[in-house]
Nucleic acid binder design. Structure first.
Lengths: 147, 147
DNA sequence: CGTTAATCTGAAGTTAGGTTTATATATCGA
DNA sequence: TCGATATATAAACCTAACTTCAGATTAACG
């Protein structure tokens, strides 16, 4: 499978694929007689795993370490398990942050939609929080509760 | 309030605070006679908003635009509302990605915990997916269902 | 008042994750 | 086989978001 084909399938640019190969994220990509890369299904699977780990917030250098472990076989099973356990924590942490950000954004959406109706911020910015409608007050309290 | 104090409160480094000021993310930070910054509660509130928008995945240059709009008053209310609506979509998209990544990670945790018990990948890597325990099969199917 | 600690500025350096460019080969359809 | 594409490499370039550095000034303490 040629690099342009893999690019289309994965959505990664050709230069990114070459970059990943060069930096050891794909192991032993086959080459034709002439030297052009010949990707296999296994390479596609690896690219999928890389994409997932990237989406989970992992850095390429750490993904590379993981890929190396995969090459090394059974002796690295425990390390790989530990890595996924660690990464699960990271993802859950990121999700918490996003959830908080989402609440702030939703509160602000309400706030500015009120201002839009009024044509000015004057009223809304002076409202006492305990006069917010119930669902908004709930958001507001979650945003401002201490950790 | 001195820069070192703000640094402690926000957790941002002193150089980051100066960087934000220089790049227009904070408006009109007051200065003492001698020229040292004198942060106000309003600056702290702005830093909080910046932190939130950053956590939601927004870039500093876009946050700067938003901060400028805030300075400009009522004429930018609709723009600000539109920005939060857009940002809500972005956050929801990010959360979807994280949720997918989390499923893959949890599947892999199970996979490698099995391998760890066995001491080898030999058995687990050859199991047919429809022999996975029910909860794992559910994960597996969600991971592999097409979009 | 002196000195130690904190702050200031502009400019250069850093890291991650690519992209672009220049130049050279390879492969493919007619 | 020719000409048009595709691919290869190394090296330079790029952006975001900071950090570090050098040199100067200011503020705080005893």
């Amino acid at each position: 499978m040629q690099i342009s084909e893999v690019s289309k399938i994965t959505g990664l640019s050709i230069s990114t694929l070459r970059y990943y190969d060069k930096h050891g994220l794909l192991q032993n990509v086959q080459r034709t007689e002439g030297g052009t890369r010949d990707f296999s299904q296994r390479d596609l699977d690896n690219l999928n795993m890389i994409e997932c780990l990237k989406n989970s917030g992992m850095q390429l250098k750490d993904i590379r370490v993981f890929m190396d472990w995969c090459e090394q076989g059974d002796s690295t099973i425990e390390k790989r398990l530990a890595m996924f356990e660690e990464q699960e924590k990271n993802v859950l942490g990121e999700m918490k942050k996003l959830e908080h950000a989402l609440k702030v954004i939703q509160f602000k959406k309400w706030y500015y939609s009120q201002a839009k109706e009024d044509g000015t911020l004057d009223r809304i910015k002076n409202i006492d929080p305990n006069q917010y409608p119930e669902s908004i007050a709930a958001l507001y309290n979650e945003i401002h509760k201490e950790k």
